[in-house]
Design a protein around this nucleic acid. Structure first.
Length: 203
DNA sequence: TGCCAGGCCCTCTTTAGGGCCTT
């Protein structure tokens, strides 16, 4: 596993639950190496069924666009290669992990990285934020945005910028030089009340 | 036809319920 790099990913899907038959329709991801975006991945994928008007409206991804896209299996096979050997980050990672697991299991492929969740981390670091939606947190941290949320690559890029802002805040609050992935995972499991103590003991 | 998620987290909790997040 590469300790200096990770992948921030985001799925657009036909709905909320692969267990209910929902499928991925777009995957977007960026690769962060030492805090810099060095690579990107973005592809629409054809789920083999029509998406609802709600999803067309929510994402801007239309049935017409998906009819010209490669099948999910082809795209996900390329994406599996892209994330090989990398740890993974997503905003509300439990959601994206379910779709990643579901789509890769359909093509008998797997991945070897571990997930961290920017939502869980932000709930601990930014307890004064109005809420912890991705768009709100981007505004809260003063990160530049053109508001094009709900597309996979854009959301993954915004999540990457939020992630870097959070790592920077951890560095400052804990008075440490860098933030190992394992430390982020521990922080996300620490109760909110114990965060100050946890950060004070990092140095 | 009618139904439709899951994990985290808080609290008026733990023999439970409901809001927050993701599409």
């Amino acid at each position: 596993m590469n300790a200096n790099s990770l992948i921030i990913l985001d799925f657009e899907t036909t709905g909320l639950s692969p267990d209910n038959g929902d499928r991925a329709i777009e995957i977007g991801a960026v690769k962060l190496v030492d805090g810099v975006i060095t690579d990107r991945f973005q592809e629409l994928m054809n789920p083999g069924c029509r998406v609802s008007y709600f999803i067309e409206d929510y994402t801007g991804i239309t049935n017409s666009m998906l009819s010209k896209a490669a099948p999910c299996g082809e795209v996900m096979a390329r994406f599996a290669d892209f994330i090989q050997g990398q740890n993974l980050v997503a905003h509300n990672a439990s959601f994206d992990k379910r779709f990643l697991d579901s789509e890769l299991s359909r093509i008998s492929m797997d991945y070897d990285g571990q997930f961290a969740c920017s939502l869980l981390l932000s709930r601990r670091l930014y307890q004064a934020a109005p809420n912890h939606k991705l768009g709100t947190l981007i505004n809260y941290k003063g990160i530049a945005s053109n508001g094009s949320f709900h597309r996979a690559l854009y959301d993954s890029e915004m999540t990457a910028k939020l992630w870097l802002a959070m790592l920077n805040d951890i560095v400052e609050r804990a008075d440490i030089d860098d933030v190992p992935f394992s430390l982020v995972q521990k922080l996300a499991k620490t109760t909110k009340a114990n965060i100050p103590k946890f950060l004070a003991n990092c140095a």
